[in-house]
Simulated scan of single mutants.
Amino acid sequence: MALLPNTAQAAGTYPDPRPLTGQQIIHDPTVIRLKSGRYVAYSTGGVIGARLSRDGKQWDDAGNAFAEPPSWWYEYNDTGDPWAPDISYRAGRYWLYYAVSSWGTNHSAIGVATSRTGLPGTWTDHGKVFASETTDHWNAIDPALIKADGKLWMSFGSYWTGIRMVELDPGTGKAVPGTTVHHLATRPDLPYAVEGPYIVRHGRHYYLFASYDACCAGVNSTYRIKVGRSTDIRGPYVDSTGKPLLEGGGDLLLEGHGRYIGTGGQSVFQDKGKDWLAYHYYDAEDNGTPKLGLNRLTWKPNGWPTVR
């Protein structure tokens, strides 16, 4: 009972997202500032839906990453529907990772495409990066990339015992053959409702952000963002009390408040030396429509992140 006042106080301090205009509808956003100076956001929906902005505030619909789904996607769902992309820049190219699956199964795959400009309509698909089957204890969706210790890593995972990570070949961008599947976070109870990992480095720590509880239910969504950290990219990740994320730990970073329901599907991007948290929320004042949330991500003296 002693925790309740602190919890209520924390909830009261959650900032609203940055005011945006234009096309704000989005789900599972990944955002980057392109070399051209424009911003692009890719997302679940369409054939990887795209939004473009010149200032990070006014967003315009920019179609889709692909004109048509690559044929191999249909192995994982009947509609060729991609989920939860991740964009990054490396070796002179933009890399777009994404997942294809069906609701409620871990017969899933992560794929990758590259582009010289990062703009919609310019992507070349390179096929599967990593896959999971119903016999696995993980689910190959929600990819996110990070370079660490001279290696390239991809975190991923949704339910099915939580968050995992594998090493990628920097040349192909695909999983190293026989790579170890590292376990980073889970919950002690079924259905292990944690997904959408994103890892960033700050100072001497790696910070693992993940979405907990239920998405995709409009105003009934309970998505919220938690975080833990480790000095080793492979873990163990712990929260500020020292509780491992493999034992259900995690500091609450952002949850629903006011009209902004079910905050999650997050990613982090840098712009002009500042860190930003991108996520979706369900707008309680617009029939639960999923929209883009952007907040500055800052760091406390003790190293832990906070949003403002």
Rank of each mutant, 00 (worst) to 15 (best):
L208S: 00
L152P: 04
G258A: 14
H27E: 09
G256H: 11
W73Q: 10
T298P: 02
R187F: 12
H137A: 14
F66Y: 14
P197H: 00
P82E: 00
G157P: 00
Y212H: 14
Q270P: 00
Y192I: 06
F66G: 05
G63T: 07
R201Y: 03
N295F: 09
I25Y: 10
I233G: 03
L253S: 02
G118K: 06
K147T: 14
S101M: 03
D81C: 06
K57T: 15
D251C: 06
C216K: 09
I163Q: 03
I163Y: 01
F156C: 04
N302L: 08
T135P: 01
W160T: 14
C216T: 12
L254R: 13
T114R: 15
V227C: 03
H107V: 09
V166K: 02
H257N: 12
D283F: 06
Q9C: 03
Q270I: 11
G111C: 05
P5C: 08
P120F: 08
V100S: 03
L96R: 01
R93N: 14
P305N: 07
G242A: 07
Y14D: 04
W95F: 08
T117L: 06
V238Q: 09
L4A: 09
Y94W: 11
F209H: 06
V194I: 15
V47I: 11
G203R: 04
S240T: 13
G288N: 01
A284Q: 10
K274C: 12
I26A: 03
G150E: 04
G293N: 03
G63F: 06
D149M: 07
G150S: 09
D60N: 05
G178I: 01
R201G: 05
V307T: 15
R116P: 10
Q24M: 09
W153M: 08
Y198M: 10
V181P: 00
T289C: 07
S88L: 06
P69F: 05
V31L: 15
T21R: 04
R187L: 15
D28C: 01
P19K: 04
H257A: 14
P120L: 12
K243M: 12
A11H: 13
G150M: 11
G242H: 08
D213I: 00
Y74F: 15
